[in-house]
Simulated scan of single mutants.
Amino acid sequence: MARVSQEHLDARRRQILAGAARCFARNGFHGTSMQDVLKEVGLSAGAVYRYFAGKEELIAAIADEAFNGIRRAFEEAAELSPPPTPDVLLGRVLRRVFDGQVYGMERRVCAALIVQVWAETLRDDRLARTLDEGYTGMRAAWAKLVEAYRAAGLMSSEVPADDVARTLIAAAQGFIAQEALFGGAEPGALENGLRGLMSMNPQKAS
């Protein structure tokens, strides 16, 4: 029997995740059964359970993949000299989330799925741990980026790096929530808003 290539295994895993994400986005986590996922991806139960033991593992994998992608964007930015400013970087990350049409879904549907994952962590300890690990990793990546800003002379050292990291993550999370709830949350608007805030000069107000 011919051996299955790693590329085939990776493609099949992504096919399953994409189908599950579409089901979750349409009907929510609790309104989606594994039978729904099987029907969506057009595979047998054995083929799917080879990769995922159940719905909880699918949800955790989707959450983990989303966090890894965003964290990589931050880490790549920290390696640039000088690194892109927060307005440019957050716009870039949100375009990766939205315009990349994760799992082939429209922007608002993708945002809604992310918000569902956040909400699910309140009742699922395993998913909460996945989310916590992702959040901790993002904070570390942003803190590293703050150090790169300081090394390039773009930011003072008065404010703790983690405080800056948490604030910028909150800005991205809030924009994703806006898109999920109301639609029309263009990454360019976030860029412009942050650029405006960054241009404030407290000395002129005194």
Rank of each mutant, 00 (worst) to 15 (best):
Asp162Cys: 06
Ala161Leu: 08
Trp118Gln: 04
Asp124Arg: 00
Thr130Leu: 02
Ala119Pro: 15
Ala128Tyr: 09
Asp87Gln: 12
Glu147Cys: 02
Thr167Lys: 12
Arg126Met: 11
Arg92Met: 07
Val117Arg: 04
Val97Cys: 06
Ala119Ser: 14
Asp125Thr: 08
Leu168Gln: 08
Arg166Ile: 15
Arg150Ala: 12
Pro86Val: 14
Val164Lys: 09
Asp99Met: 07
Arg95His: 05
Leu168Asp: 00
Val117Ile: 15
Ala119Ile: 07
Thr121Pro: 15
Arg126Gly: 13
Arg107Glu: 14
Phe98Ser: 06
Met138Arg: 01
Asp163Cys: 09
Asp87Ile: 01
Leu94Ser: 04
Ala152Cys: 11
Val93Ser: 09
Thr121Gly: 11
Arg92Asn: 05
Gly100Trp: 10
Tyr149His: 07
Gly134Lys: 11
Asp132Met: 01
Pro86Cys: 14
Ile114Glu: 02
Pro86Ile: 15
Thr167Cys: 12
Val93His: 04
Arg123Ile: 11
Pro86Tyr: 14
Asp99Glu: 15
Asp125Met: 03
Val159Pro: 03
Glu106Asp: 15
Gly137Ser: 04
Ala151Ser: 12
Val117Asp: 06
Ser156Thr: 13
Lys144Ser: 09
Ser156Ala: 15
Ala151Met: 07
Asp87Trp: 03
Arg139Ile: 07
Ala119Thr: 13
Asp87Ser: 13
Gln116Arg: 14
Arg166Ala: 15
Arg108Thr: 15
Ser157Arg: 14
Lys144Arg: 14
Arg166Pro: 00
Arg150Tyr: 13
Arg123Asp: 06
Val164Ala: 06
Phe98Val: 11
Met155Lys: 13
Thr121Ile: 02
Thr130His: 11
